[in-house]
Amino acid sequence: MLLIHCPHCDEARPEIEFAHGGEAHVARPLRPAEMDDAAWGRFLFFRANPKGMHAERWRHAHGCQRFFNVLRDTRTDEIAASYLTGAPRPDLPSAPRPDPEAAAAAPSRPEA
């Protein structure tokens, strides 16, 4: 279970209090009617899904009910930052990768 820092409550709380809200920094277009189908489709359906640092939205559903953003490394689940909605994404590098030899020996995924 992740421990997530809510920037509104300024407390790290267990994941069970939060609801995931998808990728962050995907702003709703101001004039959807002017967008063609392809552009609108990209906004609706296409997400970065990176292996590495991911900016994502969380809502403190069983707390202050407010949305905020988190930077989480999807390989290690390490949370590098949490920040307010509307604030720019902090400029943090992805955590260093394990050395290739170790990675080769790493348990493979997925598993039943």
Binding site: T76, D77, P98, E101, A102, A105, A106, P107
Partner: peptide, 16 residues
């Protein structure tokens, strides 16, 4: 998900 590495002299996987 922490990686392990083969330690040849020990002939075993150890934490990497």
């Amino acid at each position: 998900g922490s990686p392990i590495a083969w330690a040849a002299e020990r002939e075993a996987f150890l934490p990497a």
